[in-house]
Amino acid sequence: MMVKKLMPVIVLTVICLVATATLVGTYGLTKPVIEKNNALRADRARVEVLEISGNQGFESYSYDEIKKMAKGKLTEGTVEVYVAKNNLGMVITTEDRGFGGSLLVMTGIDKKGRIRGVKVLDHNETPGLGTKAMTKEFFSQYLFKDKIDNSVEASDDIRVDGITGATVTSEAVYRAVVKALTVYELIGGIQD
């Protein structure tokens, strides 16, 4: 009688245990692949925004290290800083709020403080509208500028434009890139 009453509990427990064991196994199997993929993707993105870094890779700096370099004055929204191993530039990831939530932007800046590439990593913007402000063509206006301004009065050499239908997104990208430039300044650029 006792056994019969306990049977459902036993069966459910066994099922849960087997399920968990299977999951632990699968996780162990896929974890290295996932980590390798993530690292590879991040590496590729970094090379994309800073092609001059070549194939030598990047050195990452922890948040505390960056903060120390910036003498404690780090801008809010700084996520990651990577310096190219060949010392030709750095890649700064910053965050800002777009239309559908937070927006992660990676900016490559060379030794002279000029923008060499911009890439949106993670976003929740509207497909077809907000995504218009994430294309290579749109970002080409940022290239080789060491200062940017999106106001109408700004002179041509530092001015960047928004895009119709994606005003909020293009402004968020703009703010994120400005942040990256500020972080670069605060860190004091590339030290030899």
Binding site: L12, I15, C16, A19, T22, L23, T26, T30, V33, I34
Partner: peptide, 20 residues
């Protein structure tokens, strides 16, 4: 529910690994 949830998690892990 447990059976289905485990298969979903397995699928999720494999997708993350091979079709990120």
């Amino acid at each position: 529910i447990v059976i289905i949830a485990s298969f979903v998690t397995i699928l999720g892990l494999f997708l993350k690994a091979y079709l990120p």
